[in-house]
Computed example of a mutant assay.
Amino acid sequence: MFLQYYVTESATGNRIDIEIDAATKTELDITRNGWQTVWDTDFILDSQKEIYAAKTETGEIVALGAYRVQQGSVAVYIAYMESQPESNPTLTQCKKYQGIGKAMIAFGIQLSIDANCNGVVIFEAKTDELEQHYLRDFGARPVASLHPGGPRTFMIADQAAKDIFSSYLFEE
């Protein structure tokens, strides 16, 4: 068994394999051109976070994610994730790729497993629509807010985490 992340091309329904690796400064710099968020802010580049880029085999950046992985913690915190402008529903009506959020959450679950956090991830929903999506499609559960008065905080654990993670496991 091996792990293979992928997204789906909206126009064709084809599966597009992606690799998720540590982001480079050059990859973060592209966010200055059309991305919803510029990824070189102090919040994102905080030394406690690890920044990753999800890319197609041709090097196209599909998403970026910021994760806080602390040994001895009970969960990995997904501080921020964002789809490329062509797939970001706040920036376009017709998304180029589907399934980006699920892949980035699955990667957070992998980081959690690797850090002995049992696949548990926590994150915040930026919008009401995302809240409903996380609850309905990912089995997320609301937990105490990390920032009172801020966005709602969710956790994915147990069977929900296993279901998401196992959807990327394939036989060699």
Rank of each mutant, 00 (worst) to 15 (best):
R68N: 14
D137P: 02
Y97H: 11
P151E: 14
Y52W: 10
Q84C: 08
S145H: 07
K102L: 13
S145E: 15
Y80Q: 15
P151R: 11
A75K: 01
N116G: 10
I44C: 12
K126A: 13
E129W: 08
G72K: 12
Y52K: 07
T153N: 15
S83W: 04
E129R: 15
I109K: 00
T92D: 03
G150A: 12
E86R: 08
Q110K: 11
A103Q: 05
V62S: 04
K96C: 03
Y52Q: 05
I44N: 13
T90H: 10
S83T: 09
Q98M: 11
I51T: 03
Y67F: 09
R68F: 09
Y77K: 14
M104T: 06
L45Y: 11
D128Y: 12
E57V: 13
G101C: 08
Y67P: 07
L135I: 15
V76I: 15
I156Q: 00
A140G: 01
R136Y: 13
H133W: 14
S47G: 09
L130Q: 10
I109F: 01
P151M: 10
E86H: 05
L146Y: 12
A103S: 14
A63I: 02
S112A: 09
Q70W: 06
E124K: 06
N116F: 08
M81Y: 03
L135C: 07
G108T: 03
D137F: 11
G99V: 03
F138Y: 14
L135W: 05
V69M: 12
I78C: 12
S47N: 15
A125R: 02
N118A: 11
T41I: 09
S47V: 14
A63K: 02
Y67C: 06
T90R: 09
T56G: 09
D158Q: 03
E129M: 13
E60Q: 15
A79C: 08
A75L: 04
E50H: 09
T92H: 05
T56C: 08
P142T: 05
G99K: 01
D42T: 15
A66V: 07
Q71V: 13
I61L: 14
Q110N: 13
P148H: 07
Q84P: 07
A125V: 02
P85K: 12
I105A: 02
G99Y: 01
P85Y: 11
G108Y: 03
F154E: 03
I109T: 02
S145D: 15
I122A: 08
I78P: 00
G149H: 02
D158I: 00
